[in-house]
């Protein structure tokens, strides 16, 4: 089974994508399955590092928390741009966060979450010390910002991947 379908999640997602792009029909189901299987074999030949997902429930939690957080910071940044940074009192700044997350996939997802959120931008990360430098658009409380990122995003990602 493993040899037949080396990357089941990837193949399933490819099949889903194929069916979304074309209209659902039996023919496309067969063709999409064939393509997904071939792509899975091709991926297996490349021997990518396998991603180990330890727990699934934090993924669902992140799926709810992240879009709503992005929406909130969207509104906050939009307000700041409209009011000209609260009449010039906005203070941008860099924040250093020591991370415990070491898994490369988890770090990649964390970088996507942080960069997709307006108001926080991922600037630099050192793999050895795990220190991350962020640029914050409106830095009110440095340690609160640090805690929020570690609690809201890093903790569930550690649960998922480590």
């Amino acid at each position: 089974m493993i040899r037949l379908v080396p990357h089941p999640i990837l193949s399933l997602m490819l099949l889903g994508m194929w069916l979304l792009l074309t209209r659902f029909s039996l023919g496309h189901l067969v063709l999409g399955t064939a393509i997904a299987l071939v792509a899975g074999w091709a991926m297996g030949e490349l021997h990518p590092a396998r991603v180990h997902i330890r727990r699934w429930t934090p993924i669902l939690r992140l799926g709810v928390v992240v879009p709503s957080d992005i929406l909130r910071s969207n509104l906050a940044v939009a307000g700041l741009i409209l009011t000209n940074g609260r009449r010039g009192t906005r203070r941008p700044g860099f924040v250093r966060i020591p991370l415990e997350l070491r898994d490369p996939t988890g770090l990649a997802i964390l970088s996507i979450i942080i960069t997709a959120t307006p108001g926080t931008a991922w600037i630099e990360h050192d793999r050895e010390s795990g220190i991350l430098i962020l640029h914050i658009f409106d830095l009110i409380d440095e340690s609160a910002q640090r805690d929020e990122i570690r609690r809201r995003y890093e903790a569930p990602l550690i649960e998922i991947f480590q």
């Binding site: 992005i70 307006p118 640029h135």
Partner: peptide
């Protein structure tokens, strides 16, 4: 267009690319 430093400007287009 309006923000002064590059690091500030990096935040602005995310409004368009997220929601």
């Amino acid at each position: 267009v309006r923000l002064r430093s590059f690091y500030d400007r990096l935040h602005a287009p995310t409004l368009g690319t997220s929601w």
